[in-house]
Design a protein around this nucleic acid. Structure first.
Length: 323
DNA sequence: CATCAGGGCCCTG
DNA sequence: CAGGGCCCTGAT
């Protein structure tokens, strides 16, 4: 695997909309562990592609909930142009939804007697994606029909063969390859990395992205229905993968439509303290209560339980998370 | 040891 | 629109 050392850096500040929750936004404990990001309280690292160039990012909390401010350090080799810095800034603002207006949502949360303590704790948290559409698509495909351990294995195998390791700020953070990199890699070679039938999906998706068949910037401007339609055209994207992409890439807050069996078990415990509630009931209840913010509301409650899991053993949850 | 389902999706009938 | 098949892995 190749690596790149980034020695120089430039920095700028971003002022997210208020209120803002830094750690809730930049770290999602429900996600499977990967080498693509790193996090500590008030600090966060990732890589980012701008065009064909790679940069390292360190993002630090320099503000407060009601007075948000973050510092972004951009690590580079050779140089970084003003235009690239501006693009990076805009990308960060989009990917982490830093300018979101959550007034209505926060008002809704306040009237929710049952879960208000959770909403209050994470006040200002955003749904976010560290990655661009292609990158998150790859991750989503690796999640399909696999347990966490297997997903981690597949991700590592792919990164070790086609990814790039960036060394900056004393960290080793990985970047996902460009789609075109897989064009002259055979499906058989990919299968050699034990990713199974997903090799076919990844080949075809990479081909489509190489040929610019998908316009991520345009996708961001579409309404939910049309964005979903576009995403479902992609090979290997069904209802669950579309939901992930709509929520994390497009910041569509009301995407609580598809519920997978393993999620159903966790929702049943979270919302009803029962082992299994019918998915239609779960969906109807949530939609009725949270309306246009169905998925965002669930996201707060979902991440909260995974934060707890970091330092507290939750027996029923351990059973449902298949490692 | 064999069998099976899994953090879905595609394809066929 | 229902159901079989798919890669591989760990659980039973």
């Amino acid at each position: 695997m190749k690596s790149l050392v980034l020695k120089d850096k430039k920095n700028f500040f971003v002022f997210p909309s208020s209120p803002f929750h830094f750690d809730g936004t930049f770290h999602k404990p429900s996600h499977y562990p990967d080498k693509l990001t790193d996090w500590g309280v008030g600090k966060y690292w990732q890589t980012i592609r701008i065009g064909k160039r790679l940069f390292g990012l360190k993002i630090e909390n320099k503000g407060e909930t009601q007075k948000p401010k973050i510092k972004v350090s951009v690590f580079y080799d050779k140089d970084v142009s003003e235009k690239e810095l501006e693009t990076i800034k805009e990308e960060i603002i989009w990917r982490f939804d830093l300018k979101a207006d959550l007034k209505k949502f926060n008002k809704l949360a306040k009237s929710d007697k049952r879960f208000y303590p959770i909403f209050k704790k994470w006040l200002g948290m955003r749904n976010s994606s560290a990655h661009n559409l292609y990158e998150l698509l790859i991750i989503a495909v690796l999640l399909q029909n696999a347990t966490v351990r297997r997903t981690v294995q597949m991700t590592d195998a792919l990164l070790n063969n086609y990814g790039m390791k960036l060394k900056f700020d004393g960290k080793d953070i990985f970047a996902i390859w460009l789609p075109e990199k897989l064009n002259n890699v055979s499906e058989q070679n990919l299968r050699g990395l034990k990713i199974g039938y997903r090799a076919k999906f990844i080949k075809r998706l990479s081909q489509d992205f190489t040929e610019d068949k998908i316009d991520e910037l345009k996708l961001r401007t579409l309404d939910q229905e049309n964005a979903k339609k576009e995403l479902m055209k992609l090979y290997g994207v069904g209802p669950e993968t579309a939901r992930i992409l709509l929520f994390e890439i497009c910041h569509q807050y009301n995407t609580f439509d598809h519920i997978a069996p393993w999620q159903q078990k966790i929702y049943s415990q979270l919302f009803y303290k029962k082992s299994l509630v019918p998915v239609n009931k779960i969906r109807d209840d949530i939609k009725k209560q949270y309306g246009d913010y169905s998925m965002l509301a669930v996201h707060y409650i979902w991440e909260d339980i995974f934060w707890k899991r970091k330092h507290e053993k939750i027996d029923w949850l351990e059973k449902e998370i298949r490692l």
